[in-house]
Structures are given as structure tokens and as C-alpha cells.
């Protein structure tokens, strides 16, 4: 009750109206969605059987599949994720700088950079992969570029925000000393945002490990290719091996990132 009273004082009538409108819109959107979405109920009836069947086919796992096809694909996935991340860092750095309003105080440039970042993030890694497979042909090159282009938006946005939060003082001091713009960036902004930059890079690498695991479904290399093969042939015991591998690698990557981060910060 106390909480209610406090909340009562916190909001003006206009804010309460806005909140109410938001809840109303949210509920309406949900109701409309549930009513209009196309669901074929017949498919749902045998879902439990299908799930049981799925797990029955998955177990026992075909462990021989790992050395045969999964291991090499896994290594390729790791390379795609890592190289894609490195590439995206190089690409995202300039875009992030252009997006930061305090570093480049030209609104038109900021807006353009933001548009680039949003485009990169809106198009999924899988869709990026489709595009690059169409251009460069199937294989790891398309996957690496897909990871890189999808990551530009993420890295660039967070890096730009870190720049905008940078302390203005050193920048003023170096500007007042007559330093040219690149020197101001190198010596006043970069030292401040460097830890954030590497932290973002690590974070994105972790995500990219996950993302690169599915690129093979559209022919962009990596462990997804092994998954795709097993799926098309309906060898669910091999699918299980791939899934278990992905799970292990993802958990391992998360542990690595957490460890490095706690060391650095």
C-alpha cells in the first residue's frame, strides 16, 4: 500500500494517462495478435508424440559423427566468429565515432551513421549470410562477412554511446592546447573509452559464437553445415551430437568471457 501511495505522487495526470494508454495498446496488440495469427490446431495435437519421437531418435547420440564431420566444422565456426568479430571492430570503429554527437558535432553525419548502425542490426546474421552467399558463393567467407556486418551495428552503437559518455574535461584541455582533431581523439577520447571498447568486443564475440553456429543452415560455413546435413538426412542422433557440441562451446565461451572480464575490470 505504501508503494501505491508513493507511486501516486510520482506521476502527473498526463504521465498516468500515457501509462494507461501504453497498457491499453499493449493488451489490445496482444489480443489482436492471438486472434489473427495463423495456427493450425491439428498440428498441435500430436506435438507431444512428436517431441517424444524426437528425443527417442536423438538418443543415443551418434558419437562417431563428431570426429567425422563436427570437429572440423566446429573449428571453422570458431574462426568465423573470431575473425568476423575482429573485422567488425575495424568497421564499427569509424561508424561509432561518426555516430557520437560530441565527437562529431554534425547532426547530418550522426544521423547517417545511426542509419548505418540500425541497418546493420535490423538485418539478421542469417539474412546477411544469405546476401553474402549470393555474392561470394557458399563457404566461410560469406559467414565471416555476415558476422562482421551484423556486428557493426551492435559494436558501433555501444561504442558511440561510450564516446558520448566520455568526460568532456580532457577533450577541452587538449582542444585548448591547439591539438588537431585526430590528436584530440587519440589522446582524450580513446584512453577513456578503450576499456569499454574491449569489453564490447568480448561481449560481441560471445554472441557471435552463438550466431555463427547457425550460418551453415544457409550455406555460410561452420558447424551449421554439419547440422544442416544431419537435418536433411533426418539423422537425429547426429543432430543431437551437433547440438551438444554447440551447447558445450557456448557455455565455454561464456566462461572465458566472464573470466577475462573479471580480470580486466
Amino acid at each position: 500500500m505504501i508503494a501505491d501511495q508513493r507511486r501516486w505522487e510520482r506521476f502527473t495526470p498526463r504521465e498516468r494517462l500515457l501509462r494507461f494508454t501504453f497498457y491499453l495498446v499493449a493488451v489490445a496488440a496482444f489480443v489482436v495478435s492471438v486472434q489473427t495469427v495463423e495456427v493450425i490446431p491439428e498440428f498441435l495435437y500430436d506435438a507431444p508424440e512428436q517431441v517424444v519421437d524426437l528425443f527417442a531418435r536423438m538418443w543415443p547420440m551418434d558419437l562417431k559423427y563428431y570426429p567425422k564431420a563436427v570437429h572440423a566444422a566446429l573449428i571453422e565456426t570458431l574462426h568465423i566468429a573470431t575473425l568476423g568479430t575482429i573485422l567488425s571492430l575495424g568497421l564499427a570503429l569509424p561508424v561509432g565515432i561518426l555516430a557520437a554527437r560530441n565527437v562529431v558535432p554534425v547532426t547530418a553525419i550522426n544521423q547517417f551513421a545511426k542509419l548505418v548502425l540500425v541497418s546493420s542490426r535490423s538485418v539478421n546474421s542469417l539474412v546477411w549470410a544469405l546476401l553474402f552467399v549470393a555474392v561470394f558463393g557458399p563457404g566461410a567467407l560469406a559467414g565471416t562477412l555476415a558476422i562482421a556486418f551484423r556486428s557493426i551495428g551492435f559494436v558501433g552503437k555501444l561504442f558511440g554511446e561510450a564516446l558520448e559518455e566520455a568526460n568532456r574535461g580532457p577533450v577541452e584541455a587538449l582542444t585548448a592546447a591547439g591539438a588537431p582533431w585526430p590528436s584530440v581523439f587519440l589522446k582524450a577520447y580513446w584512453p577513456q573509452v578503450q576499456p569499454a571498447f574491449w569489453s564490447i568486443a568480448l561481449f560481441r564475440w560471445d554472441i557471435n559464437i552463438r550466431e555463427s553456429a547457425v550460418l551453415g543452415l544457409v550455406g555460410a560455413g561452420g558447424i551449421g553445415v554439419a547440422l544442416d546435413t544431419a537435418l536433411t538426412l533426418l539423422y537425429w542422433d547426429q543432430v543431437a551430437v551437433v547440438l551438444a557440441t554447440i551447447f558445450a562451446v557456448v557455455i565455454l565461451a561464456e566462461i572465458i568471457v566472464t573470466t577475462i572480464r573479471s580480470r580486466i575490470i
Binding site: V39, I40, Q50, A213, V214
Partner: peptide, 24 residues
Amino acid sequence: ALCRSFHPVIVAILFVKAVGFGAI
């Protein structure tokens, strides 16, 4: 952790097998 580890696409593949193609 299990929910987070798998990419939505992989989860979707499994659900397509379980409940068929489509929005569900």
C-alpha cells in the same frame, strides 16, 4: 542457461519438427 545457449533458429528447427511449419 539452456534457453540462452541455443540460437532461436536452432530452437525453431526443433519446434518445426514438433509442431509443424508455421507461426506457432
